[in-house]
Every structure is written in structure tokens, then in C-alpha cells.
Design a binder for these strands. Structure first.
Lengths: 223, 223
DNA sequence: GAGTGATTTGACCAGATGGTCAAGATGCAA
DNA sequence: TTGCATCTTGACCATCTGGTCAAATCACTC
């Protein structure tokens, strides 16, 4: 595998994709996310993705030139939404509410898109062969920016002194853990994030632990 | 794949393994850990494991009857040591020191055995096909036991009220994250746990965050 | 050093899988 | 309806890979 690259059939309309192309590409990407997140890149088969998408393998390969192309398209498809929550962290907001909201968003992502979480985890654990460049540029810039936000809160005396980067890592680790290790969590507790009650409990526990960890009162007292 | 099962060549000495068997089995298990943790079960090849172990594929299959048998043996080999730290959590010790020691142990495991961490993560993310029974019995019992220890500390007023299970999950998530996502962490910070300074910083950050999260003063004041 | 069982290997097989291709089916504009 | 581009598919191929096997080699006992 080499890098993220295009995968549009060359014979598409100048202005975009045809109705059929649009529909089938989405079917394929959905099916691919399911398959890749369950089996990893190597364990996934084009045949199963095609079956899941309701078409023949040949037809799938008409839309995406190779297994790797499907994989890259799937990754690209989820990456934007996966990293979006961090962007909302707002310097001017109340630190406790901002961090709580971020943790909440990330936890809901784990609840609603566990497959995306596992796909991402898989990719990174294999050495991020496809997305390493993105991590080193876009994500690095974003993390630096938001670390500064946290750093400023600390300087303003609103947070206990902690390393902002480790705080971000901790939030990622805990929230994604509930998606990536859901089988283990279910084995140990009998529940997982698909249970709304468990989601609320988990959200409350993690938020409380982390916010108190950085010296913020949580849950807020007078509200 | 079905379940954890034996893999000893039937023609072994009644009392144990021969010198050669002992040596080769260890070579294979080491190589298998490397290969499986890098590529996952599906992506790993018996050929590469054999090459890494310095022997022919045929010879490897003389010691382990199948790829799955190697995988199970590798998992079993690391599982004991991987779950050991939790067992040391001692009801009668000082909660802050006990938790700090546990976090420290887990973080050193991530630093010293990142391959084991990734192998374990991979197995669980695929649905724990091999170790689910162990999670549901042994690990569940262990977690229940240690949750009670934490619960007792809370009852005694030594800790802020938190859900013990979520506390344990948080410790697992954060410490293992630094092993499993080391590529991402390196991409973002330029460093990983192989750097002793970074290990110390990380240990300090995570410990401080979690201990303060449960209402314990950390680092300890008067020492 | 002869003999016996343990160890090692290359040749080989069968199934799985990614990908190609030519031909056929379908949608659509004139 | 006709004609053309898009879409779809089954047949097929090359390669990879897990696993078998018979033969060769090695280690150790007597």
C-alpha cells in the first residue's frame, strides 16, 4: 500500500457522479467500513464487501480499482468526521464546559460509530501506512493549536497545571477504548455503549474523572 | 479459529520438552509475537514467522500444528504477564500509592512490551475469538475482586466516589494507548515510550490526572 | 559406530483471493 | 426504435499461503 489517492471512475460526468455511481459508491463505502473494521485490512475480502453491498465483486472493482483504493476511500470518508470534535474546543468558552462537551462528543462518536473507531485504531496500530502523512501534518497542527488553548487556560489559572497533549491523549484513549474494546467491556460488565444507560454512566464517570483530574469541579455545583 | 488448545508435539519426553524443543518453541513464540502484533492474525504469514525464527516453515509446523495453534500459544504466553499487575492492587495499602504503583506498572508494560499490548488489542478488537472465555471468567472475577477493593476505599472515605470499574477501564485505556497508538503519538510529539524521559513524563501526567481525578493528592506533598 | 527416534527440509498440493476481460444488460438521449 | 455510453457479470488467471509428506539429516544411546 502506498498512499491516499483518488478512486473515481474516469468516465464520470464532468460535474460529478451519476445517480447510480453516487448510490453504489455509498453502498460500497458502508459495506467496506463494516468489513474492514471487523477483519482489518488483510482479513477483509473484496468478495465479502461486494456481497454486503449487494453487488458482484467485478462490479465493485468497476467503482474502485483495487482493495487498497476501497480502504483508502473508507479511511478518508471517516477521518474528517472522526477528528471534527476537537476542532470545536473553544478558547473563549468555560474550560469545564468545553472539555466536558468534547469528552461527550467523543464518547457519542464511540457509541454511534464504533466501526469507524476500530478502523482508525487498526490503521494506526499497523503503523498508519495510509494516514501517517495526515497525522504528521493536519492532525499535528490541530493538536498543537488546541494544546495552546488548554495552555492558555492553565496560564489564566483556570486549570491545574497538566501537560495539554497528555490530556488530549487521555481523552482519546478513554473514549475510544469503549468502542475498540467493547467486546471486553461487555464480557466484564454485561453492557456496552449501545445501552443508553451505560452510555450515560460512562460519560459521567469519564468526564468526572478527567475534569476533576485537571482541577475543575464536576459536575458543576450550582446548576 | 475455535479456542485455546494444546500444541505440544506429542512425541515429547514424559517429563517435559527436550532441549531443542524448548529452544525452538521459544524462538517461534518470540517471532510470532513480533509478526502477529505487526500484522494481526490474518496479515501474518507462517512463512515470515518461520524466517524470523530462523527455520523453515515446515519445521515450524512440526512444533505447532497450525497457524492458529501458534497464535493461541502466543496469546496464552503473554496473557498471564499482561494481566498480572492488577493482581498486586492491595486493599491494605495506601490507596494513592497502590493506584500510582498500578498505573506505573501498566505504563512500564506498555513501554517494555508494546507488541504484547498490540497483540492483545488486536485480538479483542476482532471480537476476542480466542480469549473471550477467559475474559468472561478469570478476568471478570479479577476485576470484580479489585473493584471491591476500590469500593472499600471509597466507603472508608479515602477516595472520591467513582465507579471502580470505569476507573480500571480508564487506567487500562490510557496506559495501553501509549503502546497501541505509539505511531500516532510519535507523529504528534516526536517521541514515544522508548524514550525514558517521555516515559517518565507520561507516567507523571497520567498518574497525576487519574489520582487527582479520584480525589487523591498527587504527587504526595510531604515526601 | 550402528541403530533408532527426533529434527529438518524441499517439493508439492488445494483453496482462497485480488484482479482482468470480454461479453452482455441496462439506462438514456435523439 | 435506434444507438451509444454506462453498468454489470461470470469466467478466468496468477499469486499467495496454510498445510502435507516422504526423504534426508542429526543427536543420542548402546
Amino acid at each position: 500500500m502506498t498512499s491516499l489517492s483518488g478512486q473515481t471512475p474516469e468516465n464520470s460526468r464532468p460535474g460529478g457522479l451519476s445517480r447510480i455511481q453516487e448510490k453504489n459508491r455509498n453502498l460500497i463505502l458502508d459495506a467496506a467500513l463494516t468489513e474492514f473494521s471487523r477483519k482489518g485490512f488483510s482479513g477483509a475480502t473484496v468478495e465479502r464487501i461486494a456481497a454486503e453491498a449487494g453487488m458482484s465483486k467485478s462490479n465493485l472493482l468497476y467503482y474502485f480499482s483495487s482493495k487498497e483504493a476501497i480502504y483508502n476511500a473508507t479511511l478518508a470518508h471517516i477521518l474528517e468526521v472522526w477528528l471534527a470534535p476537537l476542532k470545536t474546543l473553544n478558547q473563549d468558552g468555560d474550560p469545564a464546559k468545553e472539555l466536558a462537551a468534547y469528552i461527550c462528543q467523543k464518547m457519542e462518536m464511540s457509541a454511534n460509530f464504533p466501526e469507524a473507531s476500530r478502523l482508525f485504531a487498526n490503521e494506526v496500530m499497523q503503523g498508519a501506512p495510509q494516514i501517517l502523512p495526515i497525522l504528521q501534518t493536519d492532525l499535528k497542527r490541530l493538536v498543537a493549536e488546541k494544546s495552546l488553548v488548554i495552555e492558555n487556560w492553565i496560564e489564566a489559572g483556570k486549570l491545574r497545571r497538566v501537560d495539554p497533549v497528555h490530556l488530549i491523549f487521555t481523552i482519546w484513549a478513554t473514549t475510544q477504548h469503549y468502542a475498540d474494546f467493547s467486546v471486553q467491556i461487555k464480557a466484564l460488565t454485561g453492557r456496552d455503549l449501545t445501552d443508553p444507560d451505560f452510555l450515560r454512566e460512562t460519560e459521567a464517570s469519564v468526564t468526572s474523572l478527567i475534569l476533576n483530574g485537571v482541577g475543575l469541579a464536576w459536575p458543576p455545583e450550582g446548576e
